[in-house]
Design a protein around this nucleic acid. Structure first.
Lengths: 148, 148
DNA sequence: AATCAAAATGAGATCCATTTTTATTTTCTT
DNA sequence: AAGAAAATAAAAATGGATCTCATTTTGATT
């Protein structure tokens, strides 16, 4: 489980961006720092809300652009959290990562991890004629609170 | 692997709809039959294109409505195929189902199935404090053709 | 068969997350 | 300090999905 306010990840991400040839930029840095503050998936809109009121304000397009670049470098993971809106969360450098159970009623997201699942996916990725770089598992149903 | 043009599924679905209290309706039936013709995920837009030119034409809203009802009853599975667009495909009554590897370059979708993966997910679904009804696994990467 | 309330439908308007455009500012090299 | 390339913000555009509402169809009840 990732720690809250993971500034180690922020440094890691900024370093990786630099190394990938990106120049430094205030908006992108702000997005990285905002992501570091969240311990589970955030939507672009939520990030935009957080960062719009800053001085200087960060534009919506910059948020999306930064998220895309971060995803490209494998620094964040993108997933659909509700119909039509994506959530983003940081990927720990160690490689360990979690997936999510999402409640179809209230939208609550419960993270989980499972080595067996990861192993099955890893094996599978080798077998198919496809260069797999990423995977995403979502369980859907009802959370404790919403279950009848 | 589901057979092409699965009319058994269509009958199954129409029966289930009836049983769920829905009256019969031309648009919904047309959507069911269209889904039965496809052996892998189709987008709502694609279905709309197919059905719009029919006599009588099926409206876009009816396509989305039907898909939502079918999904609710567990008759079709919804998944994100590309950023911001969902794909739908029929769920076989037997319970066997497949997942997809999706190419980030060309969007090509390669279905696969894996009992080990299913088993890992089934076990997991028991363990977490969540009433899991559904799951979705997506592998992303480059397909044979697009791999450098 | 006729009636009627409820359900289903289609066309278009609308919503909303995301992307594109464009003019401006910032970064970094020379 | 100068200039080319990259980054940015604001606004407009895009596009999938949803909503509205007037009309048609369905199926239970006469």
């Amino acid at each position: 489980m990732p720690a809250r306010a993971d500034s180690a990840w922020a440094e890691h991400a900024l370093r990786a961006l630099r190394q990938a040839g990106y120049r430094r930029g205030g908006a992108r840095t702000a997005v990285v720092e905002a992501l570091a503050r969240h311990d589970c998936a955030v939507t672009a809109i939520e990030l935009d809300d957080e960062l719009r009121r800053r001085r200087p304000a960060v534009g919506r397009a910059s948020v999306y652009r930064a998220l895309e670049q971060l995803e490209q470098l494998g620094l964040v993971q993108r997933m659909e959290v509700t119909r039509g809106t994506a959530g983003y969360e940081r990927v720990e450098p160690g490689g360990e990562h979690h997936h999510h159970a999402i409640c179809r009623k209230c939208g609550r997201m419960v993270p989980f991890e499972d080595p067996k699942l990861e192993r099955a996916i890893a094996r599978l990725s080798e077998e198919i004629s496809f260069e797999v770089t990423d995977h995403d598992v979502v369980l859907r149903g009802l959370c404790e609170r919403c279950a009848d």
